[in-house]
Write a protein that binds this DNA or RNA. Structure first.
Lengths: 214, 214, 214, 214
DNA sequence: AATGAATGAGTATTCATTCAT
DNA sequence: AATGAATGAATACTCATTCAT
């Protein structure tokens, strides 16, 4: 659907580009997590990626490109993980599965998500738009599932409530990435379990059993 | 209470310090919101505050001090607004009032909260500790109120659920500040109303009527 | 003879000027010795002198004025101490007395001399000229005494040798101020004694007994 | 030997470092001589060296590094010039040769020596230690030669006198650099000749003929 | 394709000096 | 006469980006 913002590279070999950019992203995420985007220098990124500053600039145009690549790679992963749900018709069970996938993903890519949420404001305008759109797509997925639950009678919520609830679900995911320091005594399964119960109780008035994620 | 980190000033007149720092904070929040902490220059802060760069440095020592002053002033306001709740015994009604105060505060100081959450990682270590402690105090307030609700039988939740729920409530507040662009069709009263309903349904199993905040 | 460079003051009361400037000089010498002229701020000077920055500038026009006052006060003291020798006819004995006075003075005002020699290059052009002239007057005193020794047959040196010797004597004085760290096991009397012997042997070919200074 | 304080460079090519630093030193000496270390800006140093401010900082870390490089290069030269004397057994003739080399060196590197003596106090602590140690090594050379002269009966001096005399010789060298303005009618040969005569007369009681240096 | 030396615009901070009170 | 708040020019140092090799 959404055409990706193409990042220019003066190298032609596509598979090499992919390889080098993967190195870059891995190094950059660690650095951005530690010191933030602004305090990380391009030289540090190059070094962490395992090549020279000159080489770095063969694969990107600006430092912001690196941040964009990080964000973009996260959504590639999000897409891969939630793809299967795109086709399913919403039901409470599917909703729970979606949450399990989504929260599980955030758990796996905690650093990446933190970086994305903390630093995405440093993206150039168009890149920021692209990332926000991806974000809204996620929210829209939840919204669709909730709506379909309502239509099937599993939930009784107004459209407005559904919209807010979708944001709810999305933001609770961020919370797991961001507030891990405050939630040290929860495992990811406990977290998913408890969140799910809250939501379902709040929305449907009944508990639904979920199998612990991962 | 928590001793404040004192920010050094070479000016002696305390009331002047307060006045100038208030100017600084007002200007800085606007700028930080627009361009972020790192992209804002000290000269811009001085200018926005209405004085020269030299004068700015009469009242702080480093740029980070400005960020700290912003965060600190937020928690002064938080404290002022929630003070009355400190003494009350928890009940669902008090909890709802607390949310109304808290969400109302975030609505009033939206820019400040966004800046604080986005930029606090740029604070020096000790200042960051101070701000996080303040944050945990807020969470602890919710936790206490929830616990007291459980003790009075108004809520049936495990201690762990209570802990998570407290973070929930706290994070939903941030959501109002951060995702306003996505929630344009909600007023603050609607938001408070809907959130409260969710929470109470989810926790207590029944709707409670609240009077719209503000 | 040499008209002093007048340092402007906006205060009229002459005796107050003198008092405040003495405070200034005392404080400044300590600071300049410790950190050098450039690393010392005018605020520090004011503080060390016991008054405010505003007051400091009531008695001087620029920071360099402070340095000049320091140098000038040194030569006032030099003048006071060596005055008696101005009228005496040169002889080896008088020469030795002159050295005793001069080296003793340097010993007493070690800090001041170190500051003057290390920092005088920071004086404005005309002030530097004034100080160098004072310096040459000192050398000229030695030169006169040596010349009169030669005329009386006490010394056999060419005019050129005398000139160099005069600088010699002058510079050896500086050495006592500057290289004290390397000459820790000498007392000032020993130093004067040994220096005098060197010089007299070298010049006159015979030892002359001197009474230890101080 | 004395391990050199390594100055960090972000450039790898050693020979390039050497070349660029030589350019830097040449430019810096001129500027420091004219305006002193503190009044010279890093941009001026870069410009005088023939490259940009950015390039300057590829080869040093701080402005003080430049001063250190100047001092260090002087002692490299001192070492090269006096090396041959390190092995020789002391005698009056060798002592005279040492003075000729030393004074000749100071004459050749007058600006460098003036800068070093005037500005070395601005070096960071450890760099200052290093430079002072080098200085004491020079004094120790003279001391050794004098001691060996005494042992061979060429001189009659107490150890204390020898120590002071060594400083003497060292300081007279500085005098040639520092007081050239006052010694305009001496050539370096005359200066060496006269100084040598003084010293030998004073110490040994007889004139020794020297061949004029350079 | 890869390297790393060169560039210079940009920025936090300092500090001599002024001037209203 | 004394004070100290205000000023802004000046300056060391950084770092994204380029380009010759």
């Amino acid at each position: 659907m959404n055409k990706k913002r193409e990042i220019q590279s003066s190298v032609k070999d596509e598979s090499l580009i992919e390889k080098r950019r993967a190195q870059m992203i891995r190094g950059a995420v660690t650095l951005f997590k530690q010191k933030g985007f602004h305090r990380t220098t391009t030289r540090e990124i190059a070094k962490a990626a395992g090549f020279s500053i000159g080489t770095l600039y063969e694969y990107i145009r600006t430092k912001e490109d690196v941040l964009y690549l990080v964000c973009d790679s996260i959504y590639d992963e999000v897409h891969a993980r939630l793809e299967s749900l795109d086709i399913e018709k919403g039901s409470l069970e599917v909703l729970v599965t979606a949450l399990e996938h989504y929260y599980g993903l955030i758990d796996d890519m905690q650093d990446e998500f933190v970086v994305m949420y903390q630093e995405s404001k440093s993206l150039p305008k168009d890149a920021l738009q692209y990332v926000l759109k991806k974000e809204l797509e996620m929210v829209a997925l939840f919204e669709r599932l909730l709506t379909e639950c309502r239509e099937s009678g599993e939930l009784k919520m107004t459209p407005k409530e559904i919209k807010l609830a979708a944001h709810h679900l999305f933001v609770q995911g961020q919370m797991w990435a961001f507030r891990r320091w405050a939630l040290r005594d929860f495992t990811i399964s406990e977290f998913i379990q408890t969140q799910t119960n809250f939501l379902l109780q709040g929305m449907a008035g009944e508990k639904i059993s979920t199998q612990g994620a991962k």
